[in-house]
Design a protein around this nucleic acid. Structure first.
Lengths: 189, 189, 189, 189
DNA sequence: GATGAATGAGGATTCATTCAT
DNA sequence: GATGAATGAATCCTCATTCAT
């Protein structure tokens, strides 16, 4: 079972979503197609599981960052949050992109939705502490901007992730600067 | 020929890229498969043509906006630019998303690349006029952020585009606020 | 009409029988498919006409050689006959091979059969004059051997036709040496 | 797998190469198209395997004949060699012709080339023992003549193979009579 | 007569899934 | 539980032929 997921991961990383077919996965995993179907009811189910794990690890990482930054000023928290958000893209760009592609094709999975929500919650928690009026909207946008910049950066071969992170921080902080807050101090710090 | 493109467009809009197959396109277009292949050498060619048209219209729209805003302050130019950039997503969210997916799968097409470059050039032209040190990077990031926010907004059903546009402007202006400029005035206006 | 045959010939020569399709022929001939079908009822008919012409030219050439050698000894006649038989392969190896392939696929055509018969008759006339008991059989075999050697020689790129001709003469004369004759002289000359 | 080859063989024998298509083969073999593709990667591969087997059996038969005739005079060896060379055409004329046609269309296969070479080598071994100056050329020509006569005999329905063999022997011996040899005796025996 | 757009049956190939062993 | 051979619907594409203009 782990072998099946591992094999799928490898194919996703190397040749993308379209190259994932049950026969190839089974062969690479060293099991038979029959066994594959014993553990997963369908090809989709394998991908769904992988997507679930990705979302879980992402949300876990962001939640941890959010907790760690609980008492820190925004200018310090945002870079840490952004690093957490970008982590998967940075370490596994092709795999992550392929899994996001898979996620888009798959029917809505509750666990995946929960993971996405958790990512947002972590951001919301972080932003809420700093008095933003609509932390949900801001969280969603920041995550979306981040994904946008990272995906575009990846598209042209492996990018300089230091630069990517710097620009993401700039985008996030810039965006937040324009967001309405209750009783805010003039600076974000 | 237009009928074929129209049929493909309809399928793309309704059921996404995976649902586009030559038989269905031909049927919906009211022609035979043979005729389809008389006008397009392959399934890919149909999609390529549609992608090309999308890129062309996008770049045209942005170039026009850039020209129109030539002498205006950034705070006025950015909203106009952003509206132009988002137009396709706003009017045809599912179709546009499907075509972007198609674009990713298709081999690099010179016209499409030119279209993409033109979009960036329009942004660069606009930003360059306001003294940004690296307008290319800023242009790429703003376009990427924009796409990110729009795609995320679309994902959960048809969004309130007025809100989307407002947030995109906020993101773009916020990002630019943090960008290095030569001899810049303290404000963006 | 000649243009159609000419175009077909060109395709046959360059890309072989499988590459002959009505659209390509029409295009290369500079006419429309419709016109093509005005002159020839089917794709096969075009090929049949070409095969017919090949057989006609072959039989004409051999008949002429046979007539010219009417009063000459076999050792002189055979080289001339062989040269005539091989002429088409020598000048148009690819085209001739392609047409023989076509002939094999086509339904028996009376004209083509007549041409084949005429080739045989020319050989028979030549051999009959020299007292062979079964000139028909000998003629058929000599023609067949000739084709065999030529086709095999051609298979490995353009051969040295001087050598090919010499070997064919050797084969033909050697074969005839072993054939029963009525009142034959001990030598073939 | 054997069933697939058997079905293909049957179609080849009955209706020739053009009639071989994967659907028909699968149906006649009593398997699904999917199964066919489990055993053979393509239509060509099926034909290639059949061609390979034909070449193998031909070369095996000729090599055996060559070995058996190692110490016998040419006049005795040639009939045996010719019988071996013609065997496939004699027992399966239509199938053999169809497979040779297939071979011509298929990309060069190393095994098939080896088989062809082996056929020639067997002839060369046999001829070399009798002092022919250029046994390679003679071998090629004799094989080619043989094929030529057999194919032509076959063309007009199933021939009298006793007669065919006799004529092939005559052709081979006659050809060899005219070939240069080192220190040869006046007769071929 | 000429045109060439339209037709659609036919053919090769893929791959998710099943099920007898 | 495991296996992997078998399935066949689905898909892309070709090309001989027709027929309205």
């Amino acid at each position: 079972m782990e072998a099946i997921l591992e094999a799928t991961t490898r194919i996703l990383r190397q040749d993308g979503l379209a190259a994932v077919n049950t026969n190839r996965v089974a062969e690479l995993a060293g099991v038979s197609v029959g066994s594959l179907y014993q553990y997963f009811p369908s090809r989709e189910a394998i991908l769904a599981e992988l997507v679930r794990r990705l979302r879980l690890s992402m949300s876990g990482r962001l939640a941890a960052a959010s907790r760690a930054m609980q008492t820190r000023p925004l200018t310090e928290a945002i870079p840490v949050m952004m690093a957490a958000a970008v982590h998967a893209y940075e370490t596994e760009p092709r795999l992550t992109a392929a899994l996001e592609e898979a996620e888009a094709r798959l029917p809505r999975d509750p666990d995946v939705m929960a993971g996405r929500r958790a990512v947002k919650e972590a951001m919301i928690a972080c932003l809420g502490r700093h008095g933003f009026t609509d932390p949900g909207e801001a969280a969603m946008d920041i995550v979306a901007m981040t994904r946008g910049i990272v995906m575009a950066s990846i598209a042209g071969g492996p990018p300089d992730f230091a630069s990517v992170r710097r620009r993401i921080e700039r985008a996030a902080l810039g965006y937040l600067e324009g967001c309405p807050r209750v009783g805010q101090s003039p600076s974000l710090a």
